[in-house]
Amino acid sequence: MTSCALLETRRASTHDIPLDQRLSFWEQYNASILVGLKCSSYSNSGLVASQSNLELEGLSIALVKGNEHVVERDCSMIRSIPKESVFVSLVQVSRSFFYQGGGCTLLEPGELVIYRTDKPYLFGFSGNMRQYIFDIPQDLFQARCLERLDAPLKIGSETRLQRLLIRTLCDRTQGFFERPANQDAGGFEDDAFELLANIISGQTGERRVSAHSASYLLAAKRVIAEQLGDPGLSCEWVAAAVGISVRHLARLFALEGSSPGRYIGDKRMELAHRLLSSPQASGLDISEVAYRHGFSSQAHFARSFKARYGCTPSEARNAAGSQ
C-alpha cells in the first residue's frame, strides 16, 4: 500500500435486497463488522438502510443511514457474539431513544450517547436517521477518553463549547470519510480521540475550558498539524497564524498540562514513529524521515527518538521490516 492509497471502505445496503430478507441481511452484516444485534422495522416500506465502515489502527467507524427502525442487543446476543467495546454514537438526523441498565435516554440530532457493548441495550429511531458510530476497545477508551464507564453517558449540545467540539468532530469525520487517505489515518485517529476526550471531560466536569479558549486551541492545533513538516514552525508562527499572542497561546496549552513547543515535538515524534513502524519505512533513509517531520538535525532526532521509545529509529524501521 502506498502512502497516497485510500483505506478500504466496506459498504452494505438493503436497497436491492428482497423485502422479506432485509432484516436478516442487516443483522448478518452488522454481526460481521460492527456488533451482533437484532433489528426490527416499523416502516411500511420495510428496512431501508445503508452502512459504510472504516477500520483504523485503534478504532473503527461506521456511518449508518436508514429509515425508522430499532436495534437490540440482548443477553443471548451478548453470549453468542461477545464484544467488549465502547460505542460513541453521534446522532445527526432524527430523534432517537436509547435503553440500557433500566434507564431511557432521549436524543436530539447533534447529541452523543456513549455505552458499552457487553451490556444489553436497545436503540430506536423515530424517523429517517443518520449517525456515526465510533467503535473503541474498552481498554483503549479507558486510557484515552474516560477511566470508568458503568452507565450510558449522554452528551448534549446545550453549551457553546459542546456544540463547537461536536461540530468539529462531525466535520473532521465527514471529511475523512469522503477521502480516507492512508497517510491521514493516524492524524485523524489522534484528532478523534482528542476531541472525544475533551467532549467527555467537559460533560463530566473534569476540565473547564471556555468556548472562546477551546476555539483558539482547536485552531492552533489545526495550524500545527498542517505545518508539522516545516522546520521553521515555531510558537511565534502559530500564535500569529491564529491571531493571538505567544503568551495567550502558552496559557491555552497550559490548560491541558502542556506547552506549544512540547505539543509540536510530541506530534512530530509520534508521526515519525508511526512511519518508521509501518511497511512503508523499509526504503526510507533515517535522515529523510527526520527532515520530513521537521527535525533539522538527524542526531537530535535519533537521541529524542530513543529517549522516548527505547530504541533507535533504525531499530524501529528494521523491526517493522522483519514483521
Rank of each mutant, 00 (worst) to 15 (best):
E206I: 00
C170G: 05
A319I: 01
W26T: 02
S314C: 05
A290T: 03
V48S: 10
A320C: 02
F176S: 05
V289W: 11
I166A: 06
Y263I: 00
R11Q: 09
G261L: 07
I286C: 08
C235S: 15
H248N: 05
R208K: 12
R22Y: 12
Y121A: 04
S296D: 10
D191N: 09
I286P: 06
N44M: 03
T173E: 05
S277G: 14
I133A: 11
E147Y: 01
D16V: 10
A181I: 08
L107W: 12
H300M: 04
L276G: 04
N44W: 05
G205R: 04
I224G: 01
T117E: 04
E84S: 14
S13P: 09
L122Q: 14
R95T: 13
L140N: 08
G257L: 09
F134K: 02
T204G: 02
V93C: 06
K65C: 02
V223G: 01
S297T: 00
K38C: 02
R95A: 12
S45G: 06
S80W: 07
R268V: 01
L122P: 00
V209E: 05
L146K: 01
R79D: 11
E226Q: 15
F123A: 04
L122T: 14
H300P: 00
S213N: 14
E57F: 14
V64K: 06
F87Q: 09
L255F: 07
